[in-house]
């Protein structure tokens, strides 16, 4: 059984945010993302492998690009943000740094999910390091051509998530890929030497 790349990207995004307490619904379209692009409310991060090598990547692979646009409120509502502090304010510089740190980490984990599933089906792609963007840079990202653009709404937040993915090659959102299980499941633990540790 296969599915297409758009479905894979959508599923990875929904799964990731659900793991952190935010429910995204592919049936809902994210509303008003351009309106969300104010300094106060927009949070954007991009991972572009063409910008430079990623520390830790073992071998060169096709460079990909992953960008996410969402709102401060949605990111602040995700665990562990929501459980760590009572109220995060977009007018607080410290809170902004915190939220920007977290969206970068969310991007990192999203890229990991996508890469792991693509690798299991024989497609090798690497994304760059996550970088949080300014408002103007984020608007340019939204306007740039992309293979796959996914908008996911949220029942709890007016502005959901917009995801933009570029994976080189003759692929697009409709490209069929295999559905082999990822080599290591999210949240799993692999102990390398059980015998050594157990003795």
């Amino acid at each position: 059984m296969t599915r297409n790349l758009r479905e894979l990207v959508t599923d990875c995004t929904v799964e990731l945010f659900r793991a952190y307490g935010v429910v995204l619904d592919p049936q809902l379209t994210a509303k008003g993302l351009p309106e969300a692009m104010t300094v106060d409310t927009a949070v954007t991060a991009v991972m572009d492998a063409r910008l430079g090598p990623v520390a830790g990547v073992l071998a060169p692979t096709s460079p990909g690009k992953l960008a996410i646009v969402t709102s401060f409120a949605l990111v602040a509502a995700s665990r562990p943000m929501a459980t760590k502090v009572a109220v995060l304010s977009p007018t607080s510089f410290g809170d902004w740094l915190y939220v920007r740190d977290w969206i970068r980490e969310l991007m990192n984990q999203l890229a990991g999910r996508i890469m792991n599933r693509l690798a299991a089906s024989g497609t090798s792609v690497a994304f760059g390091r996550p970088v949080a963007l300014t408002r103007d840079a984020a608007l340019r990202e939204l306007a740039a051509p992309t293979n796959i653009r996914v908008r996911l709404g949220s029942r709890d937040h007016v502005n959901g998530v917009e995801l933009l993915v570029n994976i080189p090659g003759e692929i697009d959102g409709k490209t069929r890929i295999g559905t082999l299980p990822p080599p290591a499941l999210e949240g799993s633990v692999t102990l390398f030497d059980e015998d050594a540790d157990g003795q």
Partner: peptide, 14 residues
């Protein structure tokens, strides 16, 4: 690679 280099465990996020 991590196993070869001596790591004892690999935990996947989240």
């Amino acid at each position: 690679k991590a196993r070869t280099l001596g790591a004892k465990a690999w935990m996947m996020k989240p």
